[in-house]
Design a protein around this nucleic acid. Sequence first.
DNA 1: CCAGCTCGGTGCGCTGTCGAACAGACTTGC
DNA 2: GCAAGTCTGTTCGACAGCGCACCGAGCTGG
Lengths: 261, 261
Amino acid sequence: MNTSTQNPAQNPCDPADARTQNLLLAALPIDACDRLLPDLEIVPMALGEVIYESGVKQKHVFFPASGCIVSMLYVMQDGASAEIAVVGEEGMVGIALFMGGGTTPSRAVVQSAGRAYRLPAAALMREFERHGELQLLLLRFTQALITQMSQTAVCNRHHSVDQQLARWLLLSLDRLAGSELNMTQELIANMLGVRREGVTEAARKLQTLNLIRYSRGRITVLDRSGLEARACECYGVVKREYDRLLPHPAAIADRAPAEAS
Amino acid sequence: MNTSTQNPAQNPCDPADARTQNLLLAALPIDACDRLLPDLEIVPMALGEVIYESGVKQKHVFFPASGCIVSMLYVMQDGASAEIAVVGEEGMVGIALFMGGGTTPSRAVVQSAGRAYRLPAAALMREFERHGELQLLLLRFTQALITQMSQTAVCNRHHSVDQQLARWLLLSLDRLAGSELNMTQELIANMLGVRREGVTEAARKLQTLNLIRYSRGRITVLDRSGLEARACECYGVVKREYDRLLPHPAAIADRAPAEAS
DNA sequence: CCAGCTCGGTGCGCTGTCGAACAGACTTGC
DNA sequence: GCAAGTCTGTTCGACAGCGCACCGAGCTGG
């Protein structure tokens, strides 16, 4: 949890923090970011909150701040669900807006509470249609997202619950500060589209291997590389594509102090 | 401009036929299409041919002509594979080009032989960066593709081989003229990422229900709506999104005669 | 017309996941 | 401190899909 208040970048009330809290916004040239800032609004993202409903037109897009994760999942007629992708500080929720469809058949749910920078659809489109850096960034992000979806499909087909849990933990971990996740096995089961017992069993194995510690909705990752070794290749494929396609936190770290001064 | 013989759509040598053989090209405004035509080239697409290899930069993009289907699939380290999406006359193969990544971790393979309109990467980008109708069409197509991938992930998670086979046959059928598919069970098994025996078993069931007829690499669909009834909701979700997002063949049928005159 | 190959059909034991039921552990609110 | 609720751990039978082995049917080329 990011609860420090000394650091100005952590102030929860200033939209200008967007420059450091979301990697897409942070990677924008200063003028583009300035054009968006007046319309950016910080909103809290509560665990379980439904950001988009299937087939419903979106009035806003969301840039999750560090530590906030949004899950895109499809809910079937019988109520069963399956996660399609997750989005954290590296991306944006609401790509259907600029892709042209306006809606998707999937639902977006907050999977890890935090904050997000909310932008009205019209403001996003205005900037997108300048065909500048924002468009390039968003398209690259979309391609990364496509890779994640593809790999989810592959993983669902071929890999065991054990492997998928490891992959999922790692994907979540990459989007969080620290090594602790706040989520029940029930929730994870819903995301993976498997039974809760299956997650219990898989988590138990990881625990006996001393890779994680689990207790009532709180997971602590003890051995990250051990977890990577147990995950299927899917995690690596997605990770490498994200690294290749998206701006790195390091690049932002270089920039942020210069702007803050 | 359209130097048509009696039946322009059937002439295999005239790139101008692109206006009727691929729905994306057909939906372009005349000026945009004219700009692309000089660079368009008709190429044969042989069954099994690998159009893109994982991680390899693309020199061309392909607009499949009616009856040609290209499969995007991921091949795992152990050789097992899983299909991520299929593309036919309604789309284009090579979206990574304009999305900005240039490559994808997946492979593109011809799943149903035919022809395609091949366009050099540079020519596509030139037109894409005019930010006109081509860009809009390609982004909408990409969103449709995203839906297909998402639904593949869901289907892989929750549905039986029976249901997936039905979905897959319908998706293929939508991209072919007529009701006959040329593909062995082995091939289908590779696409779905299941055992050949699993496909045999599922196909046998469909055959005893008089929905399809199967014989040595040739499938005839006898009862399309019966097949739809046996498929999972995934097919319907994808179909509706494609109908919603992409230009309809009917719209092209309205246009083509006007241009031919 | 036969040899060789491809493609499809079938049986069998194994494993992973499911569905359901239930017990124990921890947390929270009163 | 206790009751109620939430979360995790475990068990058991059912079953879909897997891997393997094998056969037969149909095409194809010499």
